[in-house]
């Protein structure tokens, strides 16, 4: 359905834009219809940048994103609008996604003006009602209110309802539950899982591995803009092959197991290692004589499970 082909993003930084920062580096993966893919990485790994590129909010430096075979970077005007009928995003902070001066349901009005000017009032009301109920909200309780009168979980579900109004096929969910409380968090997650069973594809961007495991079939692990591991979630969680994935999984706070005494190296030396393995500085297995000085390609180890590490065999034995 959605295909990312070797996309990269380079931001210009520095006072006069003289420096370059490669936020996303040669990333390719695809999302099938009705599939949830988690995009997991730490801050600065480029996960939000990928989400924004899919949503056509920022330009792609190189490579292409294809939605049902059409390259989205060429879309303009009406074609772009049609694209947004199918692809929508929900973002991390529900509180700043609204204009505090207007009532929260203004987001629905804008959708109507833009996309459905021909629909009559009663029919429109019915449509809003059903999409609000689909996200587990009671329309009488939440309509006609200002953003500050609604809780974070409600606002977040409002935004998902807005995406549902358009009958989207693909949803980019960028850290949508990290600002919510534990008790409401799981409701929003369950909602996503339910929408998935109705055929919606979701790109679930998160830094929390347990949440990613809960709803997704496949996971993509990003490190400094590169995919280091991609595969079915079970494989990634139970048999991680890349040292970084291993570190991530060991650092997740769990309720059934205490952290082992693994030292987390904080000093990531950000040298401009442009050619070698991106994880070189932090990797306990790194060895310049081995192939780490060259960027390792993604190797398929089992069906559908790819890893970018030149000595994943050794890493695996170590565990």
């Amino acid at each position: 359905m959605l295909k990312l082909e070797k996309i990269s993003k380079i931001y210009k930084t520095g006072t006069f834009g003289g420096k370059e920062l490669q936020a996303v580096n040669n990333v390719s993966f695809d999302v099938k219809g009705g599939e949830v893919i988690s995009l997991i990485g730490e801050s600065g790994s480029g996960k939000s940048t990928i989400g924004k590129m899919i949503l056509h909010l920022i330009s792609i430096s190189s490579g292409a994103i294809k939605f049902n075979g059409i390259d989205i970077s060429t879309l303009k005007g009406n074609a772009l609008k049609d694209y947004y009928r199918d692809v929508q995003g929900v973002f991390q902070d529900p509180f700043s996604s609204y204009n505090p001066i207007f009532k929260a349901d203004r987001i629905f009005k804008i959708i109507r003006e833009e996309f459905f000017p021909e629909i009559k009032n009663p029919e429109w009301k019915k449509k809003i009602d059903s999409s609000l109920r689909a996200v587990g909200l009671n329309p009488d309780e939440v309509l006609n209110k200002y953003p500050h009168q609604l809780s974070g979980g409600q606002l977040q579900r409002f935004l998902i309802a807005r995406a549902l109004l358009l009958d989207v096929k693909f949803l980019v969910a960028d850290e949508i539950i990290s600002m919510l409380d534990a008790s409401t968090r799981i409701d929003v997650l369950n909602l996503l899982a339910e929408l998935k069973s109705r055929g919606l594809s979701i790109l679930f961007i998160t830094h929390d591995l347990s949440l990613g495991y809960y709803i997704s079939e496949r996971a993509v692990i990003l490190y400094r803009g590169c995919i280091v591991e991609i595969g079915p979630t079970e494989q990634i969680y139970y048999h991680p092959l890349h040292p970084y994935t291993k570190l991530l999984i060991a650092s997740v706070p769990r309720l059934d197991k205490k952290w082992e005494e693994v030292e987390v190296k904080l000093k990531a030396k950000y040298s401009e290692l442009l050619t070698g393995c991106v994880y070189y500085e932090r990797c306990p297995f790194a060895d310049k004589d081995k192939d780490c000085a060259e960027r390792p390609p993604l190797i398929e180890t089992e069906s559908g499970h790819f890893v970018a590490c030149s000595h994943y065999m050794e890493v695996n034995e170590h565990a």
Binding site: A182, S183, R185, I186, L189, N190, A193, L209, S210, L211, Y213, Y214, I215, T233, Y237, I249, V252, R254, L255, D256
Partner: peptide, 12 residues
């Protein structure tokens, strides 16, 4: 509160 926390190894 504790039962609503997803843990690694719990799938929808």
């Amino acid at each position: 509160l504790i039962s609503s926390l997803p843990d690694i190894g719990v799938k929808y």
